[in-house]
Amino acid sequence: MQESNLLLATARAKLEEMLLARGLRRSSERFAILEEVYSRNDHFDAEDLYQAMHQKSYPVSRATVYNTLEVLVECGLVSRHQFGDNDKVRSRYEKSLGRQQHAHLVCTVCHRVTEFCDPRLHLIKTNVGQSMQFQVDSHSLVFYGHCTDGDCGNVNE
């Protein structure tokens, strides 16, 4: 719990710094959206976030959610992924501060996103960068398929 509070405090400070630097309003809505994002441990789309805010009786518009997500992506507090779900691409987000590099498995049936880490990915990234004389800052790896655990089929559109 203490680690998540420290992470949120760091995220708040980084957001405030970026808003001040750009001359943008430091609204309570933006900070409430940041808190909601950093309370989650999943991959979500803007509509998921909007619905979560309303379930908590926090009156925020869709436009504010979308605009705040853009700001959070720009300042490195949130990562945006373009996962293709059944031939349509939609943006999914996840908190990024304090997170290690990881890859994703995306189920094309139920749309579940599962993260995994494998030290060999770091080794591949390093070796490719060295052999190609290229500084790799980040990477993205996504495997598409379907769940085999028996829980698949709960389509979440």
Score class of each variant (00 low, 15 high):
His122Glu: 15
Arg80Lys: 15
Ser57Asp: 14
Asn156Val: 10
Glu157Asn: 13
Met18Asp: 15
Gln2Trp: 09
Glu70Leu: 11
Glu157Cys: 05
Gly153Ala: 07
Asn156Pro: 00
Met132Asp: 04
Gln2Glu: 15
Leu141Asp: 04
Thr126Lys: 13
Phe44Trp: 05
Ala21Cys: 00
Gln130Val: 09
Val106Thr: 03
Ala46Trp: 09
Ile33Val: 12
Ser57Asn: 14
Tyr38Arg: 04
Glu35Ala: 14
Gln135Tyr: 08
Phe31Ile: 05
His146Val: 12
Arg120Ile: 14
Ser79Ala: 14
Val89Cys: 02
Val37Asp: 06
Leu97Phe: 08
Glu157Lys: 11
Cys117Asn: 08
Ala9Asp: 15
Gln82Met: 11
Asp85Cys: 13
Thr10Cys: 11
Leu49Lys: 05
Ser91Arg: 08
Tyr58Asn: 06
Asp151Leu: 13
Val128Gln: 02
Arg30Ile: 09
Leu72Ile: 07
Arg90His: 11
Ala13Trp: 00
Arg12Thr: 14
Arg80Ser: 13
Ala9His: 11
Val136Gly: 02
Val60Ser: 06
Thr114Glu: 14
Ser28Leu: 12
Arg120Lys: 14
Glu94Ala: 11
Ser79Asp: 15
Glu74Leu: 10
Ser27Val: 05
Leu121Gly: 06
Met1Cys: 06
Gly129Lys: 03
Glu36Val: 09
Val73Gln: 06
